[in-house]
Simulated assay, not measured.
Amino acid sequence: MRIISFCADGIKQATSNGFFDWVVDQDADIICIQDLRCQEYDLTDNVFFPEGYYGYFFDSPDGINGVAIYVREIPKAIMTGLGFGESDIQARYMQADYDNISIGCILAPDTADGNPQAVENKEVFFEQLGGHLNKIRNKRREFVICGNWQIAHHESDLQDPDGNQDSSGFLPTERQWMDNLYDRLGYVDAFRTVNSDDDEFTWWPNGNRQENGWRTDLQIISNGLRSTVEYGVAYKKKEFSNHAPVIMDYDYEINPS
Score class of each variant (00 low, 15 high):
1 M>C: 13
2 R>D: 11
10 G>D: 03
10 G>R: 04
18 G>E: 13
20 F>K: 01
24 V>I: 06
25 D>S: 14
29 D>S: 12
30 I>E: 00
34 Q>S: 05
44 T>V: 08
47 V>W: 06
49 F>K: 09
50 P>L: 03
52 G>L: 10
54 Y>K: 04
55 G>N: 03
60 S>R: 11
60 S>A: 13
61 P>E: 14
67 V>I: 12
72 R>T: 11
74 I>R: 10
84 F>I: 09
86 E>Q: 13
86 E>S: 13
94 M>C: 01
97 D>E: 12
98 Y>W: 06
100 N>D: 12
105 C>F: 06
106 I>S: 00
111 T>H: 04
115 N>C: 03
122 K>V: 00
126 F>W: 03
127 E>C: 15
130 G>F: 12
132 H>A: 08
134 N>V: 00
138 N>S: 15
138 N>P: 10
143 F>E: 09
144 V>S: 02
148 N>C: 07
152 A>H: 04
157 D>H: 10
160 D>G: 12
163 G>V: 05
166 D>H: 13
173 T>H: 15
173 T>Y: 14
174 E>P: 10
175 R>I: 06
175 R>G: 11
177 W>A: 09
177 W>S: 05
178 M>S: 01
184 R>Q: 15
185 L>E: 07
196 S>M: 13
196 S>V: 11
201 F>T: 00
202 T>Q: 04
203 W>N: 04
204 W>A: 11
211 E>T: 11
211 E>N: 14
213 G>L: 10
213 G>P: 03
217 D>L: 05
221 I>T: 05
225 L>Q: 00
227 S>M: 12
227 S>A: 14
233 V>W: 01
241 S>I: 02
241 S>D: 07
252 Y>C: 07
252 Y>M: 05
253 E>A: 11
253 E>G: 12
